[in-house]
Design a protein around this nucleic acid. Structure first.
Ligand SMILES: [Mn+2]
Ligand SMILES: [Mn+2]
Ligand SMILES: [Zn+2]
Ligand SMILES: [Zn+2]
Lengths: 143, 143
DNA sequence: TCTAAATTAGTAATGATTATAAATTGAAAT
DNA sequence: ATTTCAATTTATAATCATTACTAATTTAGA
């Protein structure tokens, strides 16, 4: 869904090695429109990389967040951190019942992003633009 | 900084009792422009309420989040959840070094909020509009 | 090939949060 | 006023996502 080279180049440019494990994590992050957790990534890759460690997944995600290559969205009602490989300004919608996170494109949020970049004085690493509630499916179930 | 009656009325209207502990937590939330954690609230109130339990603080915050009376912003680089009693649309800036969260008013984000409310199809509880990075003071220290 | 630093894997430790259960409170109903 | 009963609080234990640690492995460069 996103460009894997953004992720891999971020790692390489910062002097970090592009190991097979990191490459696989970047591939997965770039290919999915989900907003994965460390555990989900680990479980997806385990069949192909049986020796992969969950600690490696956490380390890689931490590195990518520090480089601004992915965003750390936080919990979706499930107590675990969700990540977003799409760092283009957009809105995320989290359902606190089914714990899914989806995207909602928005022109307004692009203005917000440049507003913050220009006026905050902060050195920005990432953004957490997320509304939480009940998705239409889970609303229907709840009735 | 905010209106305490919004918080207390939310509790009462939902059938929850307005106990002294809950009242004190709401007062603190409404009075501060910090974005407190459960532990900070607990430590602030302990002198006045020596018997207060940290569990009660967590329960009250959970209830207020469920009612949409406060927002759950997530971590500011410190691994603990920060809350925001100001649910009016605005931008939050978190410093991952000093773990402070400040507000940045924005007209654009108000448009985003109504956009999401009208077009998402979600029943919304709250928002997490937060940019993270290094504040000007921590940038200066880092040099 | 040799060397040293980076990385990984495996496991232990941490600590924020949640669960549990007994004690307390408080709003009715009698 | 007393009783009743559910809600709430407190204290403590349990959970579990994440981080820390260490030995083994990999890899880039000399
Ligand atoms: Mn997204
Ligand atoms: Mn705020
Ligand atoms: Zn849902
Ligand atoms: Zn700072």
């Amino acid at each position: 869904m996103n460009d894997i080279s953004i992720l891999t180049k971020a790692l390489q440019h910062s002097g970090l090695r592009l190991t097979p494990q990191r490459m696989a994590i970047c591939e997965l992050l770039a290919a999915t429109d989900r907003h994965p957790t460390a555990l989900w990534i680990y479980e997806q890759l385990r069949p192909r990389y049986p020796s992969l460690s969950l600690a490696t997944v956490y380390h890689t995600l931490e590195a990518l967040v520090g480089l601004g290559a992915i965003n750390e969205l936080g919990s979706a009602g499930d107590g675990t951190v969700h990540y977003d490989a799409n760092v283009q300004p957009h809105i995320n919608l989290a359902c606190v019942s089914c714990h899914r996170v989806i995207d909602l494109p928005s022109e307004h949020i692009e203005h917000v992003a440049s507003e913050v970049k220009d006026a905050s004085g902060y050195r920005l690493f990432g953004a957490r633009i997320l509304y939480y509630g009940l998705c239409p499916e889970c609303q229907a179930k709840a009735i």
